[in-house]
Amino acid sequence: MMEMKFSTLYNLVNSMNSVYQKIQKASGLPSSEYWVMFSVYKDGSRFAHEICLSTFMSRQTASLAIKNLVRKGWLTVEVSPENRRTKELHTTEEGMIFAKQFIFPVGQLEEKAWSRLSPEEKESSITIMSRFRSFFIEEAEPLLKEVTP
């Protein structure tokens, strides 16, 4: 039986991320721009702060990527009617062409791979990762208290 170390899970997650990275590189977009498009088209993000949360990008990095995508004509930015200080992102036809080629197929691949798991495997995966996440957050609390002003 394989020795169960966290590094095994970590390496597995990184190897999955490398598939996403290869798709991003094949798209021809810089990483930050690709992940903004991914967040907008796949996750339904409409605001920069949502993109930052879903991609772990800094506000500055996300803002620069958004500006570049607006310049390319793939996104538009409008002042939100609910909050005049917030800018809302909208998709364009040009952006949709890109998304159909490099974003939506990723979601289809994820769903196909997920569908190959049994209902028990799906439930176990979610249960185990939820528990691990809770334990990780608990263990991180002292460190976060130490480094947060």
Rank of each mutant, 00 (worst) to 15 (best):
F47Y: 15
N17Q: 12
S54Q: 12
M96V: 04
S134V: 08
E94R: 13
S7M: 14
R116Q: 15
S15L: 07
S45T: 10
F56W: 12
T91Y: 09
Q60P: 03
M57E: 02
W74A: 00
P105T: 01
S54C: 09
F47P: 00
E120K: 15
D43L: 15
Y34D: 08
P119N: 11
S45Q: 01
R46I: 02
E94P: 03
P81Y: 03
I128Q: 05
E3T: 14
S15G: 05
W74E: 01
Q101M: 11
N68K: 06
S54L: 14
E88V: 01
V19W: 12
S31C: 10
A99R: 08
E78W: 01
Q21R: 13
E146G: 07
Y34W: 14
V36H: 01
E111C: 11
V106D: 07
E121A: 14
I128C: 09
A140F: 08
T76V: 05
T86G: 06
S63H: 00
L144T: 06
K72R: 11
N14M: 09
F56H: 10
E50P: 06
K100N: 14
E139T: 14
I137A: 13
K5Q: 04
L69H: 01
V77P: 00
W35D: 02
F38Q: 00
T127G: 11
P105C: 05
K22A: 12
L9D: 07
R131Y: 02
Q24G: 02
R71E: 14
A26C: 09
L69E: 01
F102P: 04
K5W: 03
E141V: 11
Y20C: 06
S18Y: 02
Y41M: 03
N68W: 02
P142F: 06
V147L: 08
L9N: 07
W74C: 00
F98W: 07
K87V: 02
M1L: 13
F56T: 07
Q101K: 15
S27C: 07
K100A: 06
G44D: 03
A48L: 11
A113G: 14
M16P: 00
P30K: 13
A99P: 10
M129P: 00
P81A: 02
Y10D: 02
E93I: 08
I51L: 03
S31F: 05
E110P: 00
Q101A: 14
K67N: 10
M2E: 14
A48C: 09
Y20V: 09
T127K: 15
L144Y: 15
H90V: 05
F56C: 13
R84M: 00
P119H: 10
E121S: 11
A113D: 13
K145S: 13
S45W: 05
